[in-house]
Amino acid sequence: MKLIINLIQLLLLLNTAIHTSSLFFTKTKKDNNYHLIAAKYHPEMPMNIRKILEEVGDNPVIKIQLGRTPVEAILILFLNIVSLWKFNNKQLELGYDEIYHNYLLITIQNDKSPKVLQQIFGGEKDTLGSMVYKLEKAHRVRLLKPVFPTEFVDIYDIPLTSNKTFTLNRLITTASNIDKHFYTYDAGNNNMCQTFVENIVDLNGLTPNILDNSTQIALKPQDAKALVATLGSRSDIVKYITDLGGKIDKLVFDHKIKWKKPIKKEFTLFGDMHIKTVDETVHNNTNEVLLKSNADTIVENVDDVFNAVVALEEDDKKKKQKQSIIIIIGIIILILMISLAAMFTYFIWKKRKGLDQRIKKESVNNAIIESKSDSSLSTNMNTIAN
């Protein structure tokens, strides 16, 4: 019995070890030799985006397009009223016919997506399925499927680099680890949707691919800082509104994320990549990337960034494989231990059963012997009596 109790304790200890190892691997996904944090594990990334990146984040990107729509007229009217129409005057002075909201339309390969048009028009069966996601920044970073037809009106192609395979995870992880304002919004300091889009394009090395002049113009951010400055002492109201919207969004949709202040992060250095100030180097390399929202820094080689993100993915895959191996080995050991326990229990039961049968047989034999002895004694007594 004591051996069985010890065996049960060993099984419980093994189960605890497996559970602990699982927690260890889950918590260390953010830690790697390249000092990067995958976007799908970043605490500031909205929960719905994390889920999308987990599901389709590694699917190859087929196409990237810059999209833009005019800012809502009601918002422009509000800014004009607050600024006593100085906002409109500054807009005309800067030569902006419209104030735009920029975003990226990213088409990814997705074989599971319904090929409705293909089935209706009898397209080829080997046509790849695809899905379009809209990546933007309003009060928070957002990744969702576009639903309004106007989102496909004013769009510009961003040519991909032929020798690189881009994915949503790679595009977003690259930008989020270098752009120190990736998760924040402050139009008063030119940190808004337009600089957000431009930085993603820049940091992934796609800017040199853009040869079309109209695309280059559309990608260039408008001077939001100068426009917001027309509000004077009320210029902070824009940031207050966006901050409030971000907090409400986080409270409603990310209630599972613990509320805590994120670690203050400027720039992350990894691998052999170097980041220098503008006055330390000259922009004579087409492969250099200027962070437009942080004009005092440049990345010398975007290939270093891309390679580091790819290495991060490989490291994550290895950790998952190790976790799977440990779990499988643990299950096998658990099955073996249960089998041994069952065999041991059966052996004890069989041995006790044999012992009981032998004791019973001996008892019967003793009873027979005693019966014969009593019978013999009775016969002798009768003989003596006679």
Rank of each mutant, 00 (worst) to 15 (best):
K264N: 11
F196A: 06
R358W: 03
Y240A: 06
N177Y: 06
I298A: 05
N366P: 01
I172T: 08
Y346K: 11
L334D: 07
N169D: 08
I332Q: 04
K322S: 14
P60R: 04
V197C: 10
D154W: 05
L14Y: 00
I210Y: 05
D236H: 08
K247L: 14
F166N: 01
D279S: 09
H139P: 00
I158F: 01
I263P: 01
E54Y: 12
T184L: 03
T207M: 07
D303T: 09
T167L: 06
K256V: 12
M337T: 14
L244H: 08
I106Q: 04
N294E: 08
I158P: 10
E313N: 12
F25M: 10
L3V: 14
T268K: 08
V252D: 04
N89R: 14
K353D: 09
K225M: 10
L206I: 07
V228Q: 02
D315E: 15
L105W: 01
A311K: 14
N382D: 13
S339R: 07
L79Q: 09
S339G: 07
N33S: 12
E93I: 01
N89V: 07
L231H: 06
S130D: 03
Q323H: 15
H42L: 07
D31L: 15
K90Q: 15
S375C: 14
S371Q: 06
A229E: 07
E72D: 15
S339E: 07
Y183C: 04
V299T: 08
G122V: 04
T195W: 01
L231Y: 00
I384C: 02
D279P: 01
L77Q: 08
N294Y: 07
K51L: 14
W85F: 14
M192P: 00
I18T: 13
N301W: 05
T268D: 00
G67L: 05
L92C: 07
D236A: 00
A385H: 06
Q9H: 09
I74W: 05
Q323D: 12
V201G: 05
K353W: 02
P60K: 04
S235C: 04
D236Q: 12
L105R: 00
L160H: 02
E313V: 11
L355P: 00
Q109R: 09
K353S: 09
P46S: 07
N189G: 03
